[in-house]
């Protein structure tokens, strides 16, 4: 499974593993939308620690989920991006969504 979902008091965490490109993003989108539409969490945190590659399709995936979450006032956060994924996030202006290490359980 490319995404593992877990819930805690902060909401839903979606831990992505493997490569995020146009091909793989399609399934990730369907999986995540199914999960959030069912539970409508306050926050959706993408745990990026298992992501080995990401191109602009990953940016589209995150922005698309942020749009979905907005319908019920939910927010998207990004946790544990590698340096490489961080570079992509910076280029796309998504850096503000990154939460500091350890802050997730605060």
């Amino acid at each position: 499974m490319p995404i593992e979902f877990t819930y805690d008091k902060n909401g839903l965490t979606a831990a992505i593993s493997g490569e995020i490109d146009h091909h793989s993003a399609a399934e990730m989108r369907i999986m995540t939308d199914g999960e959030i539409e069912r539970s409508m969490p306050r926050t959706l945190t993408f745990d990026m620690s298992g992501v080995t590659f990401m191109d602009s399709s990953g940016v589209g995936l995150i922005l698309g989920r942020a749009r979905e979450m907005k319908q019920w006032g939910g927010k998207v956060r990004i946790a544990k991006p590698s340096e490489r994924v961080g570079k992509m996030l910076k280029l796309s202006g998504l850096s503000p969504l990154i939460i500091k290490e350890g802050a997730k359980n605060a």
């Binding site: 993003a25 191109d55 602009s56 399709s57 940016v59 589209g60 995936l61 698309g64 280029l91 796309s92």
Partner: peptide, 14 residues
């Protein structure tokens, strides 16, 4: 509508 971010060329460029 297909969730494209419009960043492909920016990535290639940078």
């Amino acid at each position: 509508d297909e969730e494209r971010a419009g960043l492909g060329f920016a990535v290639m460029e940078s």
